[in-house]
Amino acid sequence: MQKQELKQGINDSIPIILGYLPLGLAFGVLANEVGMSIIQATMMSTLCFTGAGQYIAIGVMQAGGAVFTIILANVLVNLRYFLFSTSLVPYLKGRVPTVIGTFLSYGLTDETYAVAMNRYQDHAPTASYMAGLNLSSHIGWITSTLLGAILGSFIGNTERLGLGFALPAMYICLLVFMIKRNSDVFVALSSALFCLLIGYLVPSTMENLFNIIIATIIAASLGVLISERD
């Protein structure tokens, strides 16, 4: 265990936790409203850690849908992490023991992925950093769910505090950091464009977030094609 790395990971999770706070609170409140107990809502955030997937579960429950529908929708929503996780493999290989890396990948989300990838551009990954980042983000998610489920409707409108922009602001900033090559700009912009276009043409992909997967595959392939020429 490297203390400095662990601390850095925890530090880097603070903006993530800030962004999760309103989302976790809202999940706790909504879960309660559709008939989940405080324990169930908190256990769901502990075992699942999939914000979009958990919101879908609430939506389906509200509409009186089946368990199978929720699970199937979650297969689609979570499939993108196969791609994210695969792209982390070349970084983790030889630096983080496979068993530990596998265990800690449980805490992979859009946000921890973005922050970790950014860090690994100029720092070697360590198990301690991964643990600090992923576990504390997850604890933030669990805690805010618990608070939401307990406090319920006592919680006012968190939008007023501007916290709704915490995660978008983080994406914007990490995108700026991530851009190193000219081809990266091209890839990011085309991915953004394809993602919206696919979402517009096939609205269901806006819910299962399949548009992110397809846009990423297209944009990364275009990136390989155009960078071959330099």
């Binding site: 070349p90 992925y113 978008p168 890839v187 990011a188 991915s191 548009n211 944009a219 990364a220 990136g223």
Partner: peptide
């Protein structure tokens, strides 16, 4: 090597898509 190269574009692509969605479709609709 070619796969590694392709994977190196996954992070910028994912962030581009996430930024676009979170800003241009904050409530789930464009």
């Amino acid at each position: 090597k070619p796969l590694k190269r392709w994977l190196s574009f996954v992070a910028p692509a994912v962030l581009g898509a996430l930024t676009a969605l979170s800003v241009l479709a904050p409530d789930g609709d464009i």
